[in-house]
């Protein structure tokens, strides 16, 4: 018997986790799906005049994206909240599947299935609401997967003219890279909270958010100190357009590599915790 990976056993663990999926997360998803509906109803019920706010599809895409991040954050603790519990976790730990199979199943449901179900549901709800005669103009689904159209539209909407070169820079990126970057972002957020779910026994999401806030504050203090000491902010930059473009290039690359490193570390941590968790 292959004790590392067996496709039949993997199918069984996928089915096992799948049977737990909806009962554990459907309420949370329903609440998050309800937010745009509440906004729609609230706006529709207000007396209308020229100042009544209309929500364009790009604003709604922003909301759906933000809410999908929340879904990613809460998913591990909703789906696998008991897996490291000293009492309730015993059943999970003793399920005859390998660590790799349990890990892959966890990644599959937290990183892939949950966000897809949320986004499909959210776009379906948005489409239904947009079909009604209300404050939702256009269809979010038409632009959701077209990153460049979304960026251009946001720039046009907000009248962003600081420098065209970085729009050009964005445009120079391949769609594949943008998809990879987006997928990597999803993986990073999810893996961080999957790891938090494995190391904390209670208030898993809250504790992980707390740690991230502390790390962010420390990072910002270090960064500001660095900027002040190296006088990078006070330099007279001759070609500001080039500076902005270069900075964005640096940030994009830094985020890209940081996401790869953080995801890899977090996922390795999750795997190790599944393998060695004591009960």
């Amino acid at each position: 018997m292959n004790n590392t990976f067996n496709i039949n056993r993997f199918g069984k663990i996928l089915k096992h986790d799948g049977l737990n999926f909806f009962p554990n997360i459907i309420l949370a998803l329903a609440i998050i799906w309800a937010i745009p509906v509440i906004v729609f109803l609230f706006t529709s019920l207000m007396p209308s005049d020229e100042t009544t706010q209309l929500y364009d599809p790009f604003s709604r895409i922003d909301i759906i994206s933000t809410l999908s991040t929340i879904v990613l954050i809460i998913a591990p603790a909703r789906l696998y909240k008991t897996c490291n519990d000293p009492r309730k976790g015993i059943v999970y730990a003793m399920l005859p599947a390998s660590t790799l199979e349990k890990f892959l199943s966890m990644v599959f449901y937290c990183v892939i299935v949950t966000p897809i179900i949320y986004i499909v549901g959210a776009l379906a709800i948005d489409t239904i609401l947009a079909l009604l005669n209300g404050p939702y103009e256009g269809f979010a689904v038409s632009y959701y997967f077209d990153t460049f159209a979304k960026i251009n539209a946001v720039f046009e909407r907000d009248n962003i003219t600081i420098d065209e070169s970085w729009i050009l820079y964005y445009k120079s990126l391949s769609p594949t890279f943008m998809i990879v970057l987006s997928a990597l972002g999803t993986l990073t957020i999810s893996s961080i909270f999957m790891f938090g779910n494995m190391i904390f026994k209670r208030h898993k999401t809250g504790k992980m958010i707390g740690i991230l806030i502390i790390m962010f504050i420390i990072f910002m203090i270090v960064l500001i100190n660095y900027a002040v000491h190296t006088e990078v902010l006070t330099h007279n930059i001759e070609d500001k357009a080039e500076f902005v473009k270069y900075t964005i290039f640096l940030i994009m690359n830094a985020i890209f590599y940081a996401e790869i490193i953080v995801s890899a570390l977090m996922l390795f941590g999750v795997y190790r915790k599944i393998k060695t968790q004591k009960y």
């Binding site: 056993r9 599947a97 199979e101």
Partner: peptide, 21 residues
């Protein structure tokens, strides 16, 4: 915790686990 080992053991803990099923 190899699957081949786990499929031959079962522990019934003192405090029974309450499943919502």
């Amino acid at each position: 915790r190899l699957p081949e080992f786990l499929q031959n053991v079962f522990l019934l803990p003192e405090e029974v686990i309450t499943e919502d099923t």
